[in-house]
């Protein structure tokens, strides 16, 4: 139970959700929860379950889309809507599809959508790096394991899920709370904040890589990113390198010890 003081404060601060009445978001969240519950694998399904889930899901998506803000131009909006739609729809498909291989493929589609969103947000390097790292390396390994472990057919544990309704509602509640807090963004920025940003901009030395960047979309994107990465975040980079190395060693160590244990127990090794 939420403390009433906190609730009233949230309500006061929430302002509006996406410039629309909160009714829209309530509809979006509840339909999303219902559609997820209908779509998640439950073992026993009526033949109308999935169509109903699709319809409710479409309603939820439409409500979320209506809750979105207007961008600069209609073209920009269309492109953003397209990539966001790809990302969200295929993310949903990832978690509701029965076949794990299809789940991995849908996740690859999600990656494509996310990478599109990142490109629109001006993170060219990250958009492409996401594809290279996730789709090119991580997901291929997942697919390898999936295909080797379960070359065909549908396992019983892929046809059921544990507590679909509870988790769908949990997800919906999370989205609802997050959108309420996102709604606070529509509050106007105090004038001194804007002025502070403006002075920070003008005071920053022109040749410094850590200066406030006017527009991350253009102007030597990768070079600035690299400067920032190996300037301000050098120690973090080193730590990440160590982390990667440790993960490599750890993975190999676990594999080899597992093989040794399997040999000792007389189980087949691969």
């Amino acid at each position: 139970m939420l403390p009433s003081v906190f609730a009233t404060q949230l309500m006061a601060e929430a302002g509006s959700v996406a410039g629309r009445p909160g009714l829209l978001m309530a509809v979006a969240v509840t339909t999303a929860a219902a559609s997820l519950w209908l779509l998640l694998p439950k073992g026993l399904e009526h033949k109308l379950t999935r169509p109903a889930g699709f319809i409710l899901g479409a309603v939820a998506l439409a409500a979320f889309a209506l809750a979105g803000r207007r961008l600069g131009s209609i073209g920009e909006e269309a492109v953003f809507a397209l990539v966001a739609l790809v990302a969200v729809v295929s993310a949903t498909a990832t978690i509701v599809t029965r076949s794990p291989v299809y789940a991995a493929i849908w996740f690859a589609m999600t990656l494509a959508g996310v990478s599109g969103v990142l490109l629109i947000l001006g993170a060219q390097f990250l958009g492409v790096a996401t594809i290279v790292v996730y789709a090119g390396a991580i997901l291929v390994m997942f697919l390898f394991v999936l295909m080797l472990a379960q070359p065909s057919g549908l396992a019983s544990y892929d046809r059921v899920s544990s507590e679909p309704m509870l988790s769908a509602i949990a997800g919906a509640v999370l989205v609802g709370l997050l959108t309420i807090s996102i709604g606070r963004l529509s509050a106007p920025v105090p004038a001194d904040d804007v002025e502070a940003a403006a002075t920070a901009e003008s005071d920053a030395p022109a040749d410094s890589v850590t200066a406030v960047v006017p527009d991350p979309l253009f102007e030597n994107h990768v070079a600035r990113l690299g400067g920032e990465l190996f300037g301000r975040h050098l120690i973090a980079v080193e730590a990440a390198g160590v982390l990667l190395f440790v993960a490599l060693v750890g993975a190999i160590a676990v594999v080899t010890r597992g093989e040794a244990a399997a040999l000792a127990e007389g189980r087949p090794t691969r």
């Binding site: 291989v101 060219q124 492409v128 594809i131 290279v132 090119g136 697919l143 295909m147 990768v222």
Partner: peptide, 28 residues
């Protein structure tokens, strides 16, 4: 002016793996 051209090439050549892997798997 696509500032990550080489990465793009790299990313798409890693996408090609999917065609190979899925073609092999889907053949059953």
């Amino acid at each position: 002016g696509f500032s990550v051209g080489i990465l793009w090439v790299f990313a798409l050549s890693s996408i090609a793996v999917y065609g190979v892997l899925l073609g092999g798997w889907a053949s059953n």
